[in-house]
Amino acid sequence: MSERILGGVLLFVSIAGIWIARGFEAPFSYEPVGPRAFPILILALLGISAIALMLGSQSHNTVWAPPAVLKRIGALFLIVLIYAFLFDKLGFILATALMVIPVARFFGGGWKQAVAGGIGLGVGLFILFDRLLDVALPTGLWLNNLLG
């Protein structure tokens, strides 16, 4: 079933993509093939493959993880997504510590381990990258104010 749904989505993507690609017109052109041909070619092949996926044998269907595990994976994804959003707003140390604690819990760490790991990774990686390796990381407003 998952294959059929995905095939449908991809078929829609390919049709919509071709629709959009019709508007790719070069204002002036000195070559026989413009910016439109390649995407349309790819999308057409994608559409055909999507149909083949939908009609093909469904014997090797996807086995999803049990719902309880899927929920945890979804939560993990959301945590990383929030981490990405807050990365430069909260600053590396705070954002990382906040991300590490729940993720460590997911992977079987105790509360103490998770908190220690969060603070350790946040501070440790900040020192490693920002101070030693010269890879600039966001400090976040709060730390900036603290440091003056």
């Binding site: 981490y83 990382t96 991300m99 460590a104 992977f107 079987g108 990774l121 990686l125 990258f129």
Partner: peptide
């Protein structure tokens, strides 16, 4: 190295790379 330290470490380091 326990996974509870390794996995968030990998997540943080990869974000560092993209951000940098």
């Amino acid at each position: 190295i326990p996974n509870w330290l390794l996995v968030p470490g990998v997540a943080a380091i990869s974000m560092v790379g993209v951000y940098a």
